[in-house]
Structures are given as C-alpha cells and as structure tokens.
Amino acid sequence: MLLGFSDLPNLQGFLFGLLLIIYTGILTGNGLIIVITKVEPVLQTPMYFFLRNFSFLEICYTSVILPRILVCLWTQKVNISFTACAAQFCAFFMMGITENFLLTVMAYDRYVAICKPLNYPLIMNHKMCVCLVVGSWVSVIPFHILLTYLIFSLPFCGSKKLDHIFCDIRPLLKLACGDTSVNEFSVYVIVLIVGMLPFLLIMCSYVKIITTILKVPGTKGRFKAFSTYSSNLIVVLLYLGCGIITYLQPSSSHSVGLDKVFSIIYTTVTPILNPIIYSLHNKDVFALKKLLRK
C-alpha cells in the first residue's frame, strides 16, 4: 500500500489539481524545448543538444512518479504490486542518476565554453557530445541494477504500508525484515558516489566559470553572465541538494514528512523550473516566437 498523501484527506482535491497543473507544465515546457532545439538551425549547438536531451530526461523522470500519484489521488486506491513497485524504483533511479550525470556534462560544457572558448568547437564536437550523452545513460546501468537488487532481495514479511509518495529507498528498508545493515551501507556508498561526485564536479566547474567571469571587463557583460549562470546553479543546488539531504541524512534525524516534501521538490519543482531557467533568458525564446509565427 503506497500511502502517499492519504494522511491529508482534506487536501486530496487541491493536491490533485496542483500536481496536474505542474505535470502539464513539465510536459509542455520541456516538450517545447525539444521541438524548438530540434527544428531551429540557430540552436544546433552543443549547449542546446544537451538541453534537448535533458528535457527529454525530465519528461521521463517525472512520468515515472507523477501519473501514479495523480491516479492515487483521484481514485483513492493506494495498492501497488510488488513487481510494479520494483519497476518504478528501478526506472526512477535510472532516470535520477542519469540526470545527475547529465547535469555534470552540461556544467562541463559551460566550463569549456567560458574558460576555453577558442578550443570549444574542437573539444565539444558532435561526436564528443553524443558520447557524453550516451555515456550518461549507459554508465548508470550498474548502479540502478545494484540498487534494485540490494532493496528487493530483502525479505518483506511485516507491514505492507509504504508511507511515501513512491517506492523509495528508506520507506522500503523500513518494511524489510531481519538485518539490513549491509544493504543500508551499500546503498549509502552508491548514493554517495552517484550524488556527491557529480555535485562536487559541478561545483568545481562553476567555481572556474565564476572565476573567469570576474575577469571579464565591463560591469554589464559580467552582470549578464552572472545572472545566467547563477540561475542555472540555483536549479542544480535545489535538485542535488534535496536529493543529498534525503538519501544521506542520518537515520536518527530522518523524518517521513520532510522526505515527502523533498521528494516533491526534486520530482516536480525543479523539472518545471528547468525550461524557464535554462531557456527563457536565452535566444531560444525568440526561436519560439518565430516558430509560432510559422
């Protein structure tokens, strides 16, 4: 039984409407980015190639979680089969880890563009871009398979009530019987690798970017660059920060309510902000106007 928001019976209708609007916004915003960056010749650059792939990933990522939450809120049916739970868990972490790696690739792309502009066309050629995107998808396979095995190989013989909005690590570990310390430690190490490592690499890229921007002559150019990259950095910090807090916080300070809040943030808020942050202050908004006129 995936309880979700069943502890808030008076807010079921409100939450359904809110999440439906958010999900529609995610599909529309990211879908527009995919179409625009595909058809407009002026946007055939590495940055927009990565952005197109990132938008596709965001649609897949949220579609693993939100449709089921909406169905549960609408029908009040909270049952989920063991197989469906395992499939959701596997798909969610495959998308989530891929997103971490793709965010790292996008930060590297911006680092090369700002810090090594003369070598940018040579370094970030089409073959390299494709390899980086494919690598982001392929490299997660061992991690999400291992995570799924570590959780769903455990015996579940107690309560069948999963107090969360989707099949996640901590709620599932709570339902497992016997000694789960080895599994918990292994999960902790994996999350540390796929969460903290991308976070540190992204931070290193942005530190170098900001250092280079500070050397740019003229206040106007510096302010424009700061406004662009600070907004990107806020989204990254919001997404990775919530994920790191959720999965790496000690069990003693763990809160079910906070887990649900953080889960909503990194599964709904950041995906709907991405089309705004990554594109609306760039030239593809003009491409959108041109496309609509056509």
Results as ranks from 00 to 15, higher is better:
Pro198Phe: 05
Leu200Ile: 11
Tyr266Gly: 05
Trp74Asp: 00
Phe92Trp: 13
Leu173Lys: 02
Phe226Asp: 12
Val130Pro: 08
Ile209Asp: 04
Ile141Asp: 01
Thr104Gln: 12
His254Leu: 12
Ser159Leu: 08
Thr104Arg: 09
Thr37Asp: 05
Tyr206Gln: 02
Phe166Lys: 08
Leu175Met: 04
Leu32Ser: 11
Leu102Gln: 02
Ile209Tyr: 01
Leu20His: 02
His254Gly: 12
Ala287Pro: 07
Glu99Pro: 11
Leu291Cys: 13
Lys290Ala: 07
Val285Trp: 15
Ile272Asn: 10
Ile272Cys: 01
Thr219Lys: 13
Leu3Cys: 07
Pro67Glu: 03
Ala107Glu: 11
Lys283Met: 02
Pro46Glu: 08
Leu3Ile: 09
Met124Phe: 06
Leu201Gln: 03
Val42Gly: 01
Leu292Lys: 02
Gly257Met: 01
Phe156Leu: 05
Ile21Trp: 06
Ile202Asn: 05
Leu146Arg: 14
His281Lys: 06
Pro171Glu: 04
Ile209His: 07
Val71Leu: 12
Lys283Trp: 09
Asp284Arg: 01
Ile276Met: 08
Tyr188Gln: 13
Ile169Pro: 11
Ile190Met: 02
Thr45Leu: 10
Val130Gly: 02
Glu99Asn: 14
Lys220Gly: 11
Asn10Arg: 02
Cys242Leu: 07
Leu2Val: 03
Thr212Met: 14
Leu51His: 08
Pro271His: 01
Phe14Ala: 04
Ser63Cys: 07
Ile234Asp: 03
Tyr111Asn: 07
Val71His: 12
Leu18Pro: 01
Pro155Cys: 06
Thr212Ile: 10
Asn79Asp: 15
Phe16Cys: 06
Phe101Ile: 15
Gly96Val: 02
Ala176Leu: 01
Ile80Val: 15
Phe49Trp: 09
Lys38Val: 12
Asn125Asp: 14
Ser153Gln: 04
Asn274His: 15
Phe93Trp: 13
Ser227Pro: 04
Gly135Phe: 03
